[in-house]
Design a protein around this nucleic acid. Structure first.
Length: 473
RNA sequence: GUCCCUAUCGUCUAGCCUGGCCUAGGACAUCGCCCUUUCAAGGCGGUAACACGGGUUCAAAUCCCGUUGGGGACGCCA
């Protein structure tokens, strides 16, 4: 044959932001394509015109780009392809594989309710199946003629063979009365037209698959391979939703997560490679295969994601983190827009912070005390450490630092040592008050490190401020 | 209601296909200790799971059946 290049796709519907589950589906498809030197197609399923918006399309594109999931074809939009669908529907009607149905939504809803009440099947009864004449003044839908007996087997790469009794399916609608086609139909037409070889998607589509298989057959096309991914659930084991906290990719972006970390966390929801937890992108591409995917649904655990992000923060070069943290500094009012920082200085500051910061937001927050003119004090910390007791140490330190032309880590250590000896105290007695004077709080990198980063001038200023505060109170 | 999927520590998972190496391994979280100028990080150690019941077998987390739990689908949503 002409070729056997695997072709896969990610096909979200733009009725919301790119969420965690969608991102993972996209990731698995992307990895499959990259691992197998295949083609990754991006398609927007926007046939639901009432709920799809351009804003969401833009947001999903943005999310994909941020995650670095680049596509080889697309994005295709189904609303641009209506002529294609109409052509196929025409064909099915002409071949009597589909037919017009004149039942109104109200009638259908009514019958469904009755069926549910009496324990029967909630499916369309097929009453327009053999109708030869149109009902006047009614815009009909088009239904697909499903077989009434026999079985349909879905050969799933993850779940094995799954058999369905055809008797349980009804003749589903493939075209609405307004002339637009529906999901189960367009998805097949597009996957056929776009030459998809593998359909990797959420588990929630497994039950749709037999219907789609019959469409493939009716169209006279090859059925692709299917791989249905286990779902991602919230902490209470129900479908992941806003109730469980942030679910959109951009929300994590705004909380200061790194795309690589999010991807790494997501890939481990359902996929594993022995005991390994941390994978570079290249490693993932190299190691990803469908047979390491589990079958059971996974619970999304924000704490592990946070840990994962910390791992990536540590391993990201400080210069890179500097670039990444800039927007957060501006957003959180730590730096005014357009104000530049010395790159080398920022890098050094980040060196001291990246081991402890779990997110870019954390880092920005810590950077505040390096950058700001005025320290913001935590009241508890201030009360505990900036008081009469620490006053003499702070005064001594101010005097010594002012006289210290060197202001190196080494000279500072000497100064501290001298003060410790003079007052016969341990380092902690002086380090904590100084830390509070410098940062406003009790948590920070090593005391000599932060003095070095803050710089002599500001150090003296902050010591003065602390001393004044103690004296005034 | 009907159908489909699924089931190892609180959570993500390895092991299951090709039974014995499993007194079930790793990671997050948690607890304790160490390191220490704080908070982290790091190091060391601990608590913690084969859902249940039947089979098959010399032997079952691993194979079979059932039960229960969880999830999903049954739309003129995707």
């Amino acid at each position: 044959m002409e070729n056997n290049v695997p072709r896969v796709r990610f096909a979200p519907s733009p009725t919301g932001f790119l969420h965690i589950g969608g991102a993972r589906t996209a990731l698995f498809n992307w990895l499959y394509a990259r691992h197998n030197d295949g083609v990754f197609v991006f398609r927007i399923e926007d046939t639901d015109r009432t709920r799809s918006t351009d804003e969401y399309i833009a947001a999903i594109l943005d999310g994909m780009k941020w995650l670095g999931l680049d596509w080889d074809e697309g994005p295709y939009r189904q609303t641009d392809r209506m002529d294609i669908y109409k052509k196929y529907i025409r064909k099915l009607i002409d071949e009597d594989k589909a037919y017009y149905c004149y039942c109104s939504p109200g009638e259908l809803e009514q019958r469904r309710k009755e069926a549910a009440g009496t324990g029967g099947h909630m499916k369309y009864d097929g009453r327009c199946r053999e109708r030869k004449t149109p009902v006047p003044d009614v815009r009909p839908v088009v239904r697909f003629r499903m077989p009434r007996d026999g079985k349909t087997v879905v050969e799933d790469l993850i779940r094995g063979n799954v058999a369905y009794d055809n008797a349980m399916f009804d003749d589903f609608i493939i075209m609405r009365s307004d002339g637009t086609p529906t999901y189960n139909f367009v998805v097949v037409v597009d996957d056929v037209e776009m030459g998809m070889t593998h359909i990797i998607r959420g588990d929630d589509h497994l039950n749709n698959t037999p219907k789609q298989i019959h469409i493939y057959r009716a169209l006279g096309c090859n059925v692709p391979k299917f791989a249905h991914l286990p779902m991602i659930l919230g902490s209470d084991k129900t479908r992941l939703s806003k109730r469980h906290g942030a679910t959109s990719v951009q929300a994590y972006r705004e909380m200061g997560y790194l795309p690589e970390a999010l991807l790494n966390y997501l890939v481990r929801l359902g996929w594993s490679y022995g005991d390994q937890e941390v994978f570079s992108r290249d490693e993932l591409v190299e190691k990803f295969t469908l047979d390491n995917i589990g079958k059971a649904a996974a619970v999304f655990n924000p704490e592990k994601l946070l840990w994962m992000n910390g791992q990536y923060m540590k391993d990201t070069p400080s210069s890179k983190l500097g670039e990444l943290v800039m927007p957060f500094l501006v957003r959180d009012g730590i730096l005014s827009e357009g104000h530049a920082l010395d790159e080398e200085w920022l890098s050094r500051a980040i060196d001291t912070l990246k081991e402890r910061a779990k997110t870019l937001v954390d880092m920005a927050k810590s950077l505040r005390y390096y950058i700001a003119e005025e320290v913001e004090f935590d009241e508890k910390a201030r009360a505990k450490f900036l008081n009469e007791k620490s006053l003499p140490y702070l005064e001594d330190l101010r005097d010594a630092v002012s006289a210290d032309d060197d202001f190196s880590e080494r000279s500072l250590e000497e100064i501290f040592k001298a003060i410790m000896e003079k007052h016969d105290i341990k380092l902690r007695k002086i380090a904590q008050p100084v830390r509070v004077a410098m940062t406003g709080g009790t948590e920070s990198p090593g005391i000599f490190e932060i003095l070095d980063i803050i710089g002599k001038e500001k150090v003296i200023k902050r010591l003065e401020k602390a001393i004044t505060m103690i004296k005034v109170s």
